[in-house]
Structure formats: C-alpha cells, structure tokens
Design a protein around this nucleic acid. Structure first.
Lengths: 192, 192
DNA sequence: TGGAAGTTAGTGAACATTCACTAACTTTGT
DNA sequence: ACAAAGTTAGTGAATGTTCACTAACTTCCA
C-alpha cells in the first residue's frame, strides 16, 4: 500500500508531467511542488523510475474499477461502450492530469520496464473493447461488414483524439458534455 | 534554402527523436549519428530550437505537396479522403521517422514558438478534412446525420491511432497494405 | 589566400542521486 | 514510569555526469 506522502508525490508528478511534459518532471520541480527538499523524495521512492512505475499502477487500478462495474451488467454492447467512455470522461474531468497517462508512450520511453507496463495496459484495454464489439456483432447489435479489429481502432482512435484535443486546448471545454455528442456519433456509426 | 549538411542534420534529428524520443535528442547524439563533433552542429544551426523549427518546416512543405495534388482534382469527396491517407501511408513508409512529427506535441512542448507552429499545422489539416467532408455532405455522398466536426475526429483519430500502433510495433507490419483495409472501413462508415 | 567547415578543450547550469547529520516521534526493558 | 534505543522524515552540502553552447585553433578547397 501507499503512504499519504507517496500518494502526494504521485499526484504532484502527474500534474507536473501534464503541465510541462517529461522535461518538466525533475526531482527538483517535484520537491518544490510538494514543499520539501529533493533528498526527502528519496525517503519515499528509491529512484525516479519507481515514481513513474507507481503512476502507471495508480492508473491501472483506478481503471480496473471502471471496467469491472461495466462489463458484468446486462447492458447491450453498444450501451456498454457508451458507459465505458462516459466513465472515462468523468474520470478525466475530475483529474485532468490522468490524460497524460493515456498518451504516455513518450514519457515512459526511457525505460524498458515502463514500456512493458504501458504495453500491458494498452493491450488489456484493446482486448476488452474488441471483446465487447465481437459480442455485439454476434448478437446482431453491431454492424459486421467491418472487422472488430478495425472498429476498435475507429472507436478508440476517435476518443483518444477527442481527449487529446481537450488536453491541447487546456481543458477549456466541457469534456463530459461534448464527449456525449461524440459517443452518440460513434453509436450511430457502429450500429447495424 | 537548406544546405546538404542542414538536411542531413534534420533527418538525423528526426531519426533520433523517432528512435529514442525527446530525451534522446541531444546535440551529442546528433553529432555522433552524423559523424562530426558537437560544435560542428553549430556551424549549421544557431541553436537546438532552430533544428526543431526546421523539422516542422520540412514536414509542412512536404505535406503541402500531397495536399495540393489531391484537392484540385475531380475525385469524389470519399475518394479524396482515401487518396489523402494513402499518400500519407506511402510517405510514412518511406520515412518512418516522420511519424514522430504528427505526434510531436510532447517534443515541441518546451518552446512557445514550436507550439505555435505545430498548432498551425494541425489546424490547417483539420480544416482541409472538414472542408472535404462538408462538400461530400452537401452533394449527398457522405452521411449527414453526424456533424462534419465529429466525422473529422473519427477519421483523423482512427488514422492517428493506426499509425501510432505501427510506430509502437516498430514498423513491423505493412502500413500501406493494412492501411488500405482501414481506409475501406472508414469509407463504409462515412458513406450515405 | 581567405572563408567555410571542421577540430580540441573548455564553460556554467542542470540533472539524479548520495552524504552526514538532526529533530521529533515510537518502541522497549527495567 | 521513564530513559535508552530505534525509527521516520526531513535538512544542506556535495557527488559525478550530462547538458547546450563557445572560444580559439586547424584543415581544406575554390
């Protein structure tokens, strides 16, 4: 489990990465943000990479909660996809710095362990989405003139770009409200 | 105009960024890659930022050629969108490091001048795509139950994610061939 | 022969990390 | 009940390394 201070460091690191990119994520900046000195950071993490690893864990577990809740209900496949993304929009609205994690290939490029971890997360999410699509195609809800693999790229790609635009715009529009419209468009696209 | 050496530096920088990210883009690595010493770089560029600016210019002008050729012919809107992306796939296949530029928000985050330049490029491409979609909607080619703005996110987002996956996979599959299938899927999605 | 393009050898600043040390707690033995 | 011993979370100073960049010298070619 994580101590209060560790959580504080992880959250500060996320904000730092979100605001200034990897280049801004230095131990000095991190310590300044929290209001302690640089060496104090090392009382809570053995090194910088461990902080990044914890960020990924933090994201992974908080994603798991969303997924569990959604996947095991009796909604239709299309409804499931809708809810999945609504939940993500809510999560990103509450903690905008989390967005950096889903576009973190660049941030985590430095270390093979990090690349491995991020690949794991991406692949798991991919597989979940493809599974939902396949189910929907099997029961006639979702069009089957396009392979699930390609539909998943269309869905995930749309949402990623949309969130990226929100991040690029400095979170200046309502992700939740605008996002609903995009979700509606995607539903129209994938339905049979 | 650019000298041979300047071109060589720009291309080496692109490869470096593509292989190792921003963190790998140092003057030392750049000089090593070309086979000259660090100070020699400064005979050709006043500083590091100028190299990044030149990369963006390099991308911008080479994109302009593709766009010009495609926009002023008599193809249908859907064909135009298809050709646009086929051409990009060909370009990326020839010069894989160019992919880094379209995902360069992170790389160019350090300098306001760079952010401005990359924003310019993104907005121009966005507007061109939206224009094509609107034309297609007006003449009944493209579905109009979804706003052009959202369709453009779906199209652009799909292709970005697809190219990102290709980059992430170390360019291990045939972008051109696989890409054609994605383009066909997108055509099915947007047609009336 | 002179300027362009290269070199060697440096600069200060920033980086992650380690050092010796301390103030303020908690635990433990008598 | 209370002091000795140990722990936790912090400090300022310093580590070696890397960074972008520069001054001064040399080589090469038109």
């Amino acid at each position: 489990m994580q101590t209060e201070r560790q959580k504080e460091i992880i959250e500060a690191a996320l904000v730092l990465i979100n605001d200034k990119g990897i280049q801004g994520f230095t131990i000095k900046n991190l310590a300044n943000k929290i209001g302690i000195t640089e060496p104090a950071i090392y009382r809570h993490f053995t090194n910088k990479i461990q902080i990044l690893i914890s960020i990924l864990e933090y994201f992974k577990t908080s994603t798991k909660d969303i997924l569990k809740k959604e996947l095991n209900n009796n909604d239709t496949s299309i409804e499931k996809i809708g809810h999945l993304f609504t939940n993500h929009f809510i999560r990103f609205s509450t903690t905008p710095s989390l967005v950096s994690v889903i576009f973190s290939e660049e941030v985590f490029r430095s270390e093979p362990i990090l690349i491995e971890k991020i690949t794991e997360v991406i692949e798991r999410n991919d597989n979940i989405l493809i599974k939902i699509i396949c189910d929907g195609q099997a029961n006639g809800e979702i069009r089957n003139d396009i392979e699930a693999k390609y539909l998943s790229i269309v869905i995930m790609g749309s949402l990623r770009l949309f969130v990226k635009k929100w991040q690029f715009a400095g979170n200046s529009f309502n992700l939740r409200a605008e996002g609903e419209k995009l979700i509606e468009s995607i539903k129209l696209i994938i339905e049979k």
